[in-house]
Design a protein around this nucleic acid. Structure first.
Lengths: 190, 190
DNA sequence: GTGTTTTCTTAAACTACTTTAAGTTTTTTG
DNA sequence: CAAAAAACTTAAAGTAGTTTAAGAAAACAC
């Protein structure tokens, strides 16, 4: 159940068998069917999720009610609304299972206790955030410096299984263009 | 010299007067004239910068040699290439003073020692990264959900002094359009 | 202070991508 | 497996933002 997250933590910091158990005592497994929400806009964001299996997306709604994919999370990624996690503000975004997903959840209060008990987890979360932040800035770079077509070619070359698993209209949204335009790109070549 | 960073750290974790001194012993003040680089693409990224005063930008170059602003940092923000900081890979982006800037620098090795000596700094950096990551995702949201004009109006409403201080073509680049288009928006109204 | 460089403006021609709308295919559900 | 819903395609008309190019204004350097 918790072997993937344990392995992930151990890539960054060390954990004794005893500490592994302590860590697990704060975690909870949750299963979400396709299209079920882990978090909805306006709710309190009380948990943070490590994806065990499946695909999860973060999205926002604009005034016209159009959903915009901000972020995908697959196996081995953490996802939450960091803006409102651990505050008393309502969430600004939605998190939803794209495929049936199993996640490891840790609550805000539980995380605080865990960090007191296993201070090395503070380092783990820092390192994970450094990677996520760097990836987010790199995405900004891609959005600005490449055309829609280049972004699509690059994405399907680097994440071919992803393009298989996720509906095209979500890929289009993530890459910042319309599903119709993606359809046209596919017709053109590949 | 170090009072701004000390105050910033104390907003997140506590520091005794003794610990403040320890922290300062790992830090170094650096001054950069306008247009001087803190980091250039291809170099090793060995330091992390806290902006004391002035404005600093992170940018990338595309194939045509056009500079794209990825990120600005002003007083109270940390900036570095997190992708290559503390690795042996060459930096993927440039960091440059837009205005004369004073920064507090900490080296990668120094940071490691600091974290051993003052474990609460691990928490500080985690919390700072959570904010930065959340802000980066929020920017992605704005880029996708608003038109160039809306982005410009929103930005100049929320950061009016910034628009004063920074050349317009950098603001345009940051917001994802051309300086000519920004000029047109300004002519239209306000 | 005058010459040079940097930044900003204007406007016309252009294009990458959107919108709309209708039809087809695939997946889901009872 | 039949009906309904969700996802994908095609194509024509439209538009938000780019490109190019040239001139004006502001900032900088000696």
């Amino acid at each position: 159940m918790f072997d993937k997250i344990i392995a992930h933590v151990k890539r960054f910091v060390s954990l004794s068998p005893k500490e592994e158990k302590v860590l697990c005592s704060y975690l909870k497994i949750e299963d979400y069917a396709k299209k079920k929400h882990l978090l909805e806009e306006g709710e309190m964001c009380t948990g943070k999720y490590f994806v065990n299996s499946g695909v999860v997306r973060m999205y926002t709604l604009n005034e016209k009610g159009v959903e915009q994919v901000i972020h995908f999370a697959i196996e081995g990624w953490w996802i939450t609304d960091y803006f409102t996690f651990n505050t008393n503000m309502p969430a600004r975004c939605n998190i939803q299972a794209v495929e049936p997903a199993q996640v490891v959840m840790i609550g805000a209060a539980e995380q605080e206790e865990l960090l007191k008990e296993l201070p090395q987890m503070e380092r783990y979360f820092r390192l994970v955030l450094e990677k996520a932040y760097a990836a987010s800035l790199m995405r900004t770079h891609y959005m600005f410096n490449f055309s829609a077509e280049e972004r699509y070619r690059h994405f399907s070359e680097h994440y071919p299984e992803f393009v298989q698993r996720v509906p095209q209209y979500l890929v289009a949204s993530y890459l910042g263009f319309t599903p119709e335009f993606l359809s046209m790109l596919r017709a053109k070549k590949g």
